[in-house]
Design a protein around this nucleic acid. Structure first.
Lengths: 214, 214
DNA sequence: GATTGTGAACTACTTCACAGCA
DNA sequence: TGCTGTGAAGTAGTTCACAATC
């Protein structure tokens, strides 16, 4: 393969799963792994893993496999999660609070450093060591802290307005929990967390199987 | 196209987005829509929408487009969300509580009808009109209420054990928030909500753009 | 005139299968 | 001998482009 081939986005989206699995291996004290073994843990074929990694270099040893720690470091470097990425969270409802307190977000490159809400009842409230700030001041904080990544956890109808402000302030990637497709400039990345859509896509298969039973 | 072609899973996963957009159109009082207009709202090409729908039948009118209400009904029928799907939620931490209280889950086919946790401090607690039950009793409840769908919101290391019990009890589709790939029989569907992985995949592009600036 | 439904063409992604190396 | 890295083959998904038709 030409190294000039850009890695497809599907590959980029699998890398965090590889990284996580490698971290679990390390915790178990396993220091060497083959593409086969790694694949079995995360339900991906061995060929897929090898092909994915080949976009970025040669990290394994024939006859042996991969050094877990080294491969993890390579992947973290590729993803940029060896760096520190400050994240803004907008919307401190129940979901926002759960996100703000979730330990899993305090790992590998990502740290929530600012909380925003427009509700006066929420502004000033403390969550962990952070204080909820007025969304009206978001711009200043985002510029000041050089925040490029944001999480949106506001109701559907407010999501676009919030996204517009964030992007204007310098945010370049958004993770949105709002059930609403956002319109953004093409140099901004948006991904969605949409549990309802996910459940509704699974009911298709359940309904179909139910048919077959009768 | 042969109607006998099975719709690919990507198509099934897009249907809930089409349905949601159609509901929003109805709320705006719009009763007719072309594939072009619908596509612009959800950032999907017109051809994609038409092709997707063609797996299931012919729902539009040449020169006109689609009747919003009728198309919505067709899609809800296809997805099986015209039926009622009782859902079990396991893990009533902060995230579980946010999920249990989230209004968005109380729509279109889906209803959380049982809450489980293993923590004695949580068992008996009321959330909305539901009472948190001991996970040890999950099996009986799942069989009794014929629950086929479950949401897992427990820590990573407990997720597999929880999934095993759920599946043994009759659950056939799982939405997991745990950062852990589950091993399940092939007739069980699993999907993941993994915000950390999503954020970490976006840092790739941010890091790359940062490179280009220098 | 506008817009659907759909084969055909195209693009993207995955898997195969094996040379090459430890 | 065992396992990687990778072209080639195969499979899946998207877009094109246009006949059909409202």
């Amino acid at each position: 393969m030409e190294r000039s081939d850009l890695p497809p986005d599907v590959v980029i989206r699998r890398l965090p799963l590889y990284a996580r699995s490698l971290r679990y291996l390390l915790e178990e004290g396993i220091h060497s792994v083959s593409s086969q073994e790694l694949g079995e843990r995360i339900n991906v074929t061995a060929a897929q893993i090898r092909k994915d990694l080949s976009y970025f270099g040669e990290f394994g040893k024939q006859g042996i496999g991969y050094d877990v720690e080294k491969l993890l470091q390579h992947i973290e470097r590729i993803l940029g999660i060896n760096q520190h990425w400050p994240v803004a969270l907008v919307g401190i409802g129940l979901l926002g609070q759960a996100i703000a307190r979730y330990e899993g977000f305090r790992t590998e490159g990502i740290e929530i450093v600012a909380l925003f809400d427009a509700d006066p009842a929420k502004i000033g409230q403390k969550i962990g060591d952070l204080t909820v700030q007025d969304f009206a001041h978001a711009r200043w904080v985002i510029v000041e802290k050089q925040i490029k990544l944001a999480i949106i956890a506001v109701p559907a109808l407010q999501a676009q307005r919030v996204a517009d402000v964030l992007i204007e302030s310098g945010v370049r990637a958004i993770l949105s929990y709002a059930p609403m497709i956002l319109q953004v400039p093409e140099d901004v990345w948006v991904r969605y967390i949409d549990p309802v859509a996910v459940l509704q896509s699974m009911t298709y298969y359940l309904a179909r199987d139910q048919q077959l039973e009768h």
